[in-house]
Design a protein around this nucleic acid. Structure first.
Length: 286
DNA sequence: CTAGGATCCTGTCAGC
DNA sequence: TGCTGACAGGATCCTA
């Protein structure tokens, strides 16, 4: 679920709570959700929090790191004097913890970090800091949208000329950080149909697409991610940031912000996909 | 090699 | 009510 903006939001938020704090104990409630030797991290202090694409890294003071990938339904909830929750939005943000979906508990002196994950696709992994760059997932990651030119993206798209552009945008070895929400939002902003073949997108369109990807993710990061920490508002109601942020994602049957015609939900690359069929054309027209 | 589909897992919701 | 299938903010593995 969480895409680059959400993970970056988690990184920034969590930094405030656990930087320079000591991990006292790690409890593993679900073996599948944890890889490596947990005791290597115990009684060591958090030195830095980094992010590579959608992967979060917590570096400790003993050359050991925790690598966390939330995949579809992962969430990190820090419960101390106050609660900070981010990741897959759900009732867990306000629920009693641990609960049925809690997979790993990381105990600090003055608070507790809960790793919840309904579908168990995500994980926490302990490894030497020096080994992160050799991790299979990290090693293959493409640059983030801000770290590549539109010429470079254009060239990379030619590696999968017959794939739908949406599938290519979701491929983290082509461009990293986009997931289902921001792929749909970026394609809508650029006026490109998700089923367009990646090899048939013009250089001008690629420039527009890259600019759009940067912009939709920047807007989200600046607003605290679509699943922001303030998901639970002061009055106890649940904020739905995605509803305000998204132009097309989960907006089927609602009017297109550009032309007013209804947004349609289709299936592309095995994923639910939201488009305006009028504003996003399959063929390029000069 | 590519492209697309199945798969991991739990939970919810629409439709009968 | 109870059942069934579809689907879900990700990535990998398998097949043709």
């Amino acid at each position: 679920m969480p895409e680059l903006p959400e993970v970056e939001t988690i990184r920034r938020g969590l930094t405030k709570f656990i930087l320079k704090k000591c991990i006292k104990k790690i409890d593993i409630l679900c073996e599948k959700s944890f890889q490596g030797e947990p005791t290597l991290a115990e009684n060591h202090t958090v030195k830095s929090l980094r992010r590579f694409g959608k992967a979060l890294i917590i570096d400790l003071d003993n050359q050991i790191s925790l690598m966390i990938h939330l995949r579809m339904t992962g969430q990190l909830i820090y419960d101390g004097k106050e609660r900070y929750a981010a990741g897959h939005p759900s009732e867990n943000f306000v629920a009693d913890l641990p609960n049925r979906q809690t997979r790993v508990i990381v105990k600090f002196n003055d608070g507790t970090l809960f790793f919840n994950d309904q579908r168990k696709f995500g994980f926490i992994k302990v490894l030497p800091t020096a080994e992160i760059k050799n991790d299979a997932f990290i090693k293959k990651l493409a640059p983030e949208p801000w770290d590549m030119t539109s010429e470079e993206l254009f060239n990379r798209l030619q590696k999968h000329p017959n794939s739908c552009i949406k599938a290519t945008l979701l491929d983290q070895t082509i461009i990293c950080g986009l997931g289902n929400i921001y792929a749909d939002e970026a394609l809508f902003a650029a006026g490109i149909h998700p089923e367009r073949k990646s090899g048939l997108i013009t250089k001008d369109e690629v420039k527009l697409l890259l600019d759009s990807a940067r912009r939709v993710m920047e807007e989200s990061i600046n607003s605290g991610g679509s699943t922001m920490a303030t998901y639970v508002k002061a009055d106890g109601t649940r904020g739905d940031y995605l509803e305000k942020f998204a132009q097309v994602f989960r907006k089927e049957n609602q009017p297109c912000p550009k032309c007013g015609r209804p947004i349609v939900k289709i299936r592309v690359a095995g994923r639910g996909t939201h488009i305006c069929p009028h504003c996003q054309k399959k063929e390029h027209h000069a």
